[in-house]
Design a binder for these strands. Structure first.
Length: 428
RNA sequence: GUGACCGUAGCUCAAUGGCAGAGCACCUGGUUGUGGCCCAGGAGGUUGGGGGUUCGAGUCCCCUCGGUCACCCCA
């Protein structure tokens, strides 16, 4: 049957079979965040449109063509969040968190929305964990954030990931670099493709990560931003690298790494995974020292990153990382149709006693109910048979050994608790 | 927004323009009340939708919807 309704383009239903990945990610993220002293925050799924225009930047693709913007009934222009950082920075300012001891270290988990053409690892609604630390310019904080990301992925079981690191300078030094880059590109104007000609006008730094073969020689010989950093940025970057090197956190120095959001300053980084298509970045972020001020707050530095759940899961599958399975049910209650009433009451008692129970429905053969029990992987099947009920008892079958025991109804809970505690690993 | 490829059973896929099929999954039986393995049987389809060509369309053509992948860009 073809379904009358289907999910909107670029959205995902996460069916039970997929859930273990999500549960595992969520669990691991909370654990690692706590380990590094980060606290969870939740911000609205939509904000005033202006926040993103100011925060993310007017000329960015996100703002120009990817936002889900709508008018509400009060004629306010609202936008489904296309990223977390602006909303979290807004909350930081709105609740005067800059008056608390700094740095304020936060993380958030939830859906973000961008109107894009879907492809491998890219969806219109996707899930991110966003990590943000405000109020500290010490490169030790950059190190901490990078190390947190590294730790998170190691904890998840990743072996082969590629850390990409760069510095994009600050308002003091970046303009000089952009001028130099533009001048260089104008000299090579007829060697670059149409996209790059357009980038040169709109967002010059982006020419650096052009993928067109034609542009590669030009990129290779282009001026490097690291040669243009001001003293402050250079010192910051070198200190961070020293910390990373000492910690044995290996990375690729990638002078072509630039990011599409306007707020980034100094440190920028991404983590790439293989085997998940063209959208290889499972994590991306950097420092945004001007953002809080841009949003009307005090001049407070910040750094953070976002990591995309769906891409992480793709990468896990590509690398053969499987999440721990959910625990199966403890018991299935099977019955003859004549004993169903007893079975129904027993299932309620078992659940009240904390025993995970599947009740067989309908009037089916015991064979069929046993097959169901086998499929569910329960440790025990409780057979509510006529003879047993007449004696005030049930038969309990150990699904691993096949051994059966008649247990008085009044003792079933105690019996099962004892049995389940001695054999926590159910039959599979 | 641009481009390429693809829509057949719940899933993965067959079917030269000529009877819509297989494997897996599901259900039932093989045991008057017993799972897995095995065996037998069953159910399940508007071939995404609409139009056209043709004696005849899953197959060819057009439109449309959807998916996938890539570009742009991003997690």
């Amino acid at each position: 049957m073809t379904s009358r309704y289907q999910r909107p383009t670029g959205t995902l239903d996460i069916l039970p079979a997929e859930r273990p990945y999500w549960r595992y990610l969520e669990h691991t993220v909370h654990e690692v965040m706590h380990l590094y002293g980060y606290e969870q925050i939740d911000v609205p799924v939509f904000e005033h449109t202006e926040l993103y225009v100011r925060g993310v930047g007017e000329g960015t693709d996100i703002v120009e063509k990817e936002m889900y913007t709508f008018q509400d009934k009060g004629n306010d222009s609202l936008t489904l969040r296309p990223e977390f950082t602006a909303g979290i920075a807004r909350a930081y300012v709105e609740h005067h968190l800059y008056k608390q001891p700094q740095p304020v270290k936060l993380y958030a988990i939830g859906p973000v929305f961008r109107y894009e053409r879907p492809q491998a690892g890219r969806y219109r609604q996707h899930t991110q964990v966003s990590v943000e630390a405000f109020g500290e310019e010490d490169p030790a904080l950059d190190f901490e954030v990078l190390h947190l990301a590294y730790h998170l992925f190691r904890q998840l079981g990743f072996q082969h990931l590629y850390f990409q690191l760069n510095s994009t300078g600050c308002p003091a030094c970046r303009p000089r670099y952009v001028e130099a880059l533009k001048a260089y590109y104008l000299e090579h104007y007829d060697e670059i493709d149409a996209d790059c000609k357009r980038r040169l006008q709109r967002n010059p730094l982006r020419v650096l990560d052009c993928k067109a073969d034609q542009c590669q020689p030009v990129i290779m010989a282009a001026p490097k931003i690291l040669d243009y950093l001001c003293d402050d940025c250079r010192t910051h970057f070198h200190t961070l690298r020293a910390y990373l090197d000492a910690a044995g956190l290996s990375y690729v120095l990638n002078p072509r790494l630039v990011r599409g959001l306007d707020y980034y300053t100094k440190t920028v980084f991404e983590i790439w995974a293989e085997g998940i298509g063209a959208q290889a970045a499972i994590c991306g972020g950097g420092r945004y020292d001007g953002l809080v001020a841009e949003l009307g707050g005090p001049s407070v530095p910040g750094i953070g990153f976002g990591a995309g759940w769906e891409r992480i899961i793709l990468a896990m599958k590509a690398q053969g990382i499987t999440p721990p399975p959910l625990p199966p049910l403890h018991v299935l209650v099977a019955h003859m149709s004549s004993t169903k009433a007893t079975a129904v009451q027993l299932s309620a008692q078992l659940r009240q006693a904390g025993i995970a129970t599947w009740l067989a429905f309908g009037d089916r053969s015991l064979k069929s109910q046993m097959r169901e029990a086998n499929r569910l992987g329960v440790a025990y099947t409780i057979i509510v048979g006529e003879g047993e009920v007449a004696r005030g008892a049930v038969t309990v079958r150990d699904m691993r050994t096949g051994q059966q025991t008649e247990v008085p109804l009044t003792d079933v809970v105690t019996w099962l608790r004892a049995a389940l505690s001695t054999s926590p690993e159910p039959a599979s």
